[in-house]
């Protein structure tokens, strides 16, 4: 029974990886195929002829590199801000009982359900009033605002999962509340924080609609906007260069995942056990 379980687990994992990874593999494959090959009925993972020109064309497109830089700045700043301001607030939300919590949770849900198309106009006008329309700072702020509900919601879930008794034990030892938070609660939350940070980064990095509508000047465009420009009218898609651009666009996310992976996986319960 036990001996069988491991191979079965590996097989299942392999299937998952195949399912999740195959589209990226196919994207990479498309990025090195010529337009002629992409528009044929031949099915092959490896190209008949390596067509690196797609990367050259993608990179020579107006502003691809510049917009990637914009996206990186917006995503990193937004992620940092979200984590820093959501952490304390989510703690309060999780430990509060009664009406305030219900209101908070209710708000989080409603704000996520209401269609964004209906909110975008008033939002645009408010941003312009405070002088932040068509600016990366404004876009960052919007990303922060719209990722916050999720961050709060998730983090308060993780906080709820920490037994109050642990904190009380800390408090009995005479530690102040801030110390309890810093030394007991936040370390326990590290995996949750890593998950939230990954989510925030990816959401901001990939976000399209706000960026489309709020940014007017090409020098402020973010990567999804620039990539979308590979898709022309009448469904004309420059598939090869688009795939090449998309592969390049995937790199920062993967680097970010790799960096945060350790946070996500390290056995942080150890800290609590030692304490």
């Amino acid at each position: 029974m036990r001996a069988l379980a491991r191979p079965a687990q590996y097989a299942a994992l392999l299937l998952y990886i195949l399912f999740l990874g195959f589209p990226l593999l196919w994207l990479i494959s498309a990025s090195v195929k010529s337009s002629r090959e992409l528009n044929s009925l031949t099915v092959s993972l490896l190209p008949q002829q390596w067509h690196w020109e797609n990367y050259v064309e993608a990179l020579s497109r107006q502003g691809l590199v510049h917009s990637a830089w914009n996206s990186l700045v917006v995503a990193l700043v937004a992620t940092a801000v979200v984590v820093v301001i959501a952490l304390p607030a989510s703690y309060v939300l999780a430990r509060l009982r009664g009406k305030v919590r219900a209101a908070g949770v209710g708000w989080i849900l409603v704000s996520q359900v209401f269609p964004v198309v209906l909110v975008i106009l008033p939002l645009f006008l408010i941003l312009r009033t405070i002088g932040l329309a068509d600016s990366l700072a404004g876009l960052t702020l919007v990303h922060v605002t719209y990722m916050l509900p999720f961050a709060l919601w998730m983090l308060q879930g993780y906080v709820s999962a920490i037994p109050v008794e642990l904190e009380e034990a800390g408090a009995v030892d005479g530690a102040s509340r801030v110390t309890v938070l810093r030394t007991i609660v936040f370390p326990l939350l590290a995996p949750g924080i890593a998950a939230t940070a990954m989510f925030s980064f990816v959401s901001s990095w990939n976000e399209f609609f706000f960026a489309l509508v709020l940014l007017q000047s090409p020098e402020n465009y973010t990567l999804p906007i620039t990539l979308k420009m590979f898709i022309g009218g009448e469904g004309k898609v420059a598939l090869g260069p688009l795939a090449a651009g998309a592969v390049l666009a995937a790199v920062p996310s993967i680097v970010f995942f790799t960096l945060l992976r350790r946070r996500l996986t390290s056995g942080l319960m150890a800290g609590a056990v030692k304490g």
């Binding site: 999804p224 666009a249 995937a250």
Partner: peptide, 30 residues
């Protein structure tokens, strides 16, 4: 494997649909 599990996140949504259209393609799809 943990990084690979995150691959769908790394694919820009702009191309997700296009990529799946290719995969599902009735003739000439993988």
């Amino acid at each position: 494997t943990r990084v690979l599990a995150l691959v769908p996140w790394a694919m820009p949504p702009v191309v997700v649909a296009i990529m799946w259209q290719m995969i599902y393609s009735a003739n000439g799809g993988p």
